[in-house]
């Protein structure tokens, strides 16, 4: 027990990194998801094709493979580009690689949730926007987007929970998140089970807080909707 107390700050530091990675990836994933959803619903065949390929590939390949591919492959790519431009050796930051990969992966999942949400927005509301003379961008940002969130929210919540758990993989590319730190603590105290238990509990804490947040969001975006 005293060992857990001694190493708890280290684990908490890792937890902070886990949350940071999750939130930054969420930002990227939401942006990519919106672009992907709009592309999948667009009239352009090329845009639909690209977005469709993106979601299929991401959903067909394990996160771990994509993450190592982007981390190790990205390093080579950066080196090649750097060499051509006559720069020194550049290290790919595992933090950036991790955030980009997770954001890139979950962009595909968010695109699916957003697509469903956009399809559920009442056609008349969008037409009304056009009738008022709004530009397509204005219609999207003022009408489609806010109205779509309510329908997409359950999907968003699920994706977020899966995403939080996926952040555990960044420990594989050397990022010192809480799984990585638990490995360190477990190694030096010879009590790995105890420390992985602590980490598992902390993951449950994060998901617990997320539940509260989701309920708040649901309330906020369902204002004006009567429920039985």
């Amino acid at each position: 027990m005293s060992q857990v107390v001694a190493y708890f700050p280290l684990i908490l530091k890792g937890m902070l990194l886990t949350v940071e990675v999750a939130l930054l990836s969420l930002l990227i994933a939401v942006l990519l998801g919106l672009i992907g959803a709009v592309a999948r619903l667009s009239k352009s065949r090329i845009a639909r094709g690209i977005a469709g390929t993106y979601t299929t590939i991401i959903r067909g390949i394990p996160d771990l493979v994509l993450m190592t591919l982007i981390f190790f492959g990205g390093q080579i790519l950066v080196n090649d580009i750097g060499e051509k431009m006559g720069l020194d050796y550049i290290d790919v930051d595992p933090f950036i690689a991790g955030v980009l990969t997770i954001g890139f992966i979950f962009g595909a999942y968010f695109a699916e949730s957003f697509r469903g949400g956009i399809l559920a927005v009442a056609r008349g509301e969008i037409e009304a926007g056009h009738a008022f003379g709004m530009t397509p961008l204005q219609v999207f940002s003022r009408i489609t987007l806010p109205a779509m969130v309510r329908h997409a929210l359950p999907g968003i919540g699920n994706n977020w929970l899966v995403m939080v758990k996926t952040t555990a993989l960044v420990s594989v590319i050397g990022l010192q998140d809480m799984v990585y730190n638990a490995g360190l603590a477990g190694g030096s105290t010879r009590k790995p089970f105890t420390f992985y238990c602590v980490v598992a509990f902390l993951f449950l804490v994060i998901t617990g807080f997320s539940d509260v947040g989701m309920r708040w969001l649901d309330k906020r975006y369902s204002v004006g909707v009567r429920k039985a």
Partner: peptide, 14 residues
């Protein structure tokens, strides 16, 4: 509620 990676490490290392 917890990552599969942590569950696997709990058994393999733990």
């Amino acid at each position: 509620g917890t990552p599969l990676l942590v569950q696997m490490f709990m058994i393999y290392h733990g």
